[in-house]
């Protein structure tokens, strides 16, 4: 572990990380909880050193379970995984030294001050003395907590607690950082700020980051590569651009005036032929993929009108990760999100 004097960079990776092509590697990891809850069914992926990898999926898809296995907190029933070449099952001690973990919950001791939380965390990683004191102050400054540093964490706002939480994950200068839903529950401003920080650690400091999120825009914005995970399995993987370009053409979306039987709508659209692909009707929202949205919309509105179906609004969108998700999982993201959290 690098414990040298810090430069401007908040995290300086050791030489090992620069050499290791694969910072994280998971091979067929599976996990079933007691009561036959199948959390993961054979997940495989690789994260290159110095990049941000996004695990995207609804609550209950198995994202947190994956992170818990990679951080040695939980053991897989089957499969293998390595972090910087260390086996998470056989060499947990070595893995723990090189990783930072920020869980979904804000894991702060509320009866201690911000500084005490950071210092205890550093102590557990073998840091001490002036070096640790400087490191704690540096992080408190960096996260805008300097004024509150000697106050009990109980008095912190939700946003401040989250920042302290992330700072605690960075005290020991990890080489690989696991962020489980880093911006869940943050207001838009705090969220944008967190995004800037995360990008910075990766681009400037060379930190490898695995983050889970159920926000599509977050994965799109931050991740170099994304894996979409549903019901414990990866359904698509690639750079956000690759995933989006897999989808030919534009997405159109039409809001209908009232609920219509699926058959009626599909029958009306039938006359447009193969021009419309991947047609779905989700309550009053009709979605389809077309080569050119500008041409398709008038035609679609016309056939609906003829069939006596009134449209309230129509939009055309370039493919988004939402569309990718929709295509692979077969239901809109927000609906899948109602699943049980794990």
């Amino acid at each position: 572990m690098n414990r040298g004097q810090s430069t401007n960079a908040i995290i300086r990776p050791g030489p090992a990380v620069l050499q290791a092509e694969r910072a994280i590697q998971a091979r067929d990891i599976a996990k079933t909880y007691t009561g036959n809850v199948r959390a993961l069914q054979g997940l495989s992926f690789t994260v290159k050193a110095g990049t941000i990898f996004g695990l995207l999926g609804p609550n209950g898809a198995g994202k947190s379970t994956t992170v818990k296995i990679l951080t040695t907190l939980s053991r897989p029933d089957a499969g293998e995984a390595w972090v910087l070449g260390f086996d998470v099952i056989r060499q947990p001690e070595q893995v723990r030294r090189v990783i930072g973990y920020v869980s979904q919950k804000t894991a702060v001791d509320l009866e201690a001050t911000g500084r005490e939380n950071l210092v205890l965390q550093g102590h557990l990683y073998g840091m001490a003395g002036n070096e640790l004191r400087r490191r704690a102050s540096e992080l408190l400054d960096r996260f805008g907590l300097a004024d509150a540093s000697d106050r009990i964490a109980q008095t912190y706002s939700g946003g401040m607690l989250r920042k302290l939480d992330v700072a605690m994950g960075l005290v020991h200068r990890p080489q690989v950082l696991f962020l489980d839903e880093p911006t869940a529950g943050l207001d838009p401003e705090a969220r944008a700020e967190m995004w800037r920080e995360i990008s910075h650690w990766s681009r400037e400091d060379g930190l490898t980051i695995l983050l889970t999120t159920h926000y599509l825009d977050e994965a799109d914005h931050l991740a170099d590569r994304v894996a979409i995970i549903d019901a414990g399995a990866i359904v698509a993987e690639g750079t956000p651009e690759e995933l989006k370009s897999e989808l030919r053409g534009d997405a159109i979306q039409v809001e209908l005036n009232d609920l219509q039987p699926k058959e009626t709508v599909l029958a009306a659209l039938y006359q447009l032929g193969d021009g419309l692909r991947e047609v779905t009707l989700d309550r009053r929202t009709l979605r389809a993929r077309v080569d050119s949205g500008a041409h398709a919309i008038p035609a679609v509105l016309a056939v609906l009108e003829t069939a006596g179906i009134t449209a309230l609004a129509a939009t055309v969108a370039r493919p988004s990760l939402d569309d990718v998700y929709l295509r692979h999982v077969g239901r809109a993201f927000n609906d899948a999100d109602k699943g049980e959290a794990r």
Partner: peptide, 12 residues
């Protein structure tokens, strides 16, 4: 609170 998980992920 998740504090236990944080301890268990540390080399302790």
């Amino acid at each position: 609170r998740g504090v236990m998980d944080r301890f268990l992920v540390a080399p302790v």
